[in-house]
Design a binder for these strands. Sequence first.
DNA 1: AGCCGCTTGTGAACGCAGGAACAAAGTCCC
DNA 2: GGGACTTTGTTCCTGCGTTCACAAGCGGCT
Lengths: 219, 219
Amino acid sequence: MQPRPRTIPEATVARLAVYLRVLTTLADGGRSTVSSGELASAAGVNPAGLRKDLSHLGPCGVRGVGYDVGALRDRLTGVLGVGSARACVLVGIGNLGSALADYAGFGTRGFEFVGLFDASPARIGQRVGDLEVRALDELEDVVTATGASIGVITTPAEVAQTVCDRLAAAGVRSILNFAPVPLAAPAGVDVRKVDLSVELQVLAFLGQQRVPAGVGESA
Amino acid sequence: MQPRPRTIPEATVARLAVYLRVLTTLADGGRSTVSSGELASAAGVNPAGLRKDLSHLGPCGVRGVGYDVGALRDRLTGVLGVGSARACVLVGIGNLGSALADYAGFGTRGFEFVGLFDASPARIGQRVGDLEVRALDELEDVVTATGASIGVITTPAEVAQTVCDRLAAAGVRSILNFAPVPLAAPAGVDVRKVDLSVELQVLAFLGQQRVPAGVGESA
DNA sequence: AGCCGCTTGTGAACGCAGGAACAAAGTCCC
DNA sequence: GGGACTTTGTTCCTGCGTTCACAAGCGGCT
């Protein structure tokens, strides 16, 4: 007996996270109710699409009035599973890794880094944010001890697969990969990839496509 | 006279960038030809999809043999518009901005940062990578002088729209936005968004969905 | 109490991306 | 020179995501 189907499209989940952020802002501003139109505008999406996204959670609005800001925020918090802080480990403390470890957007949104790891002896022992960088050898122990369920990989491409394997073997079930290689993970482990240079290249293509005549005139 | 339709789907363009990276690696390794199956495996996609992606560029392989690594790489380089280095400016030199300015993956792939900007006087004058952080006032002058066509925003959310407006007014045609707000840009300016906390939240949801013990039963 | 306007939630149509199967073409071997 | 194998390029089909448009429900006003 499950009145609502458990399957929520990934694209919808991504937008729910955006709605949650907007709702938090609105709640801080003292707003009590919002209409789908206003919320959609603040989130940068279509109002009808927003309502369809929310319909996956069952009815959570009042017709003729709109959505209760606090209630909807709490509902989204529960559905997205960010009610209790989730323990994350980060492997590869280079420039990008350090930035992520210090990124306020994570800590304030239900995620807590409980371990930073690097292979370079020069980095081990350094403090980044409020954590100390540890040797890669301790990875499995820390994952087990903290019950970390999320791993972030910001290592060079060559070692990303090895790190992925170790994370998966240690019990991590979700991996966010910034290394520019496709990772193979065992069943039961989700991998998401963020490729920053690809984003730039898509942007470059779109800009070039727009002006097909003599665009690279940087001289 | 345009033998091939100019419309290439965005999803395809993103994958073309991945193929280009793999091809570069293969070329460095001395490979001369590759089959679609091998290339697809290295890129983490379906072979049929890869061939379909490449078909947007017209025939560029030899049946019975495969693709010429060097030729295909050059073709992709041309299509993606990364043949000549593109000038980029980066606004918001916090942790993330510093990491991006230093990220080797950009410089080696046809992108060159020509200006780093921040509003905080404490950061102005600091060296990041091989550039000096400049005052935000100089943004327009630098964009004009260098002909930068790409802007990257890593500022706090509150000022992202203002920066976006100034970039667009100065002549930047493509913007990569890391701030967690939807940006409105005039026609002719492309905006792509990368939201790191959303990626983590999607991951958290998928991990939670896999183990539905004690979901938020708010009833 | 009844009506009206506003907003949500849902159903259907459209377009797009992804995957699989098939035909064309070139090469290697006999 | 001919046949067969390999690999590309294309075509069809299925499924998903998005959008538009309508019906249902609730509050407020008369």
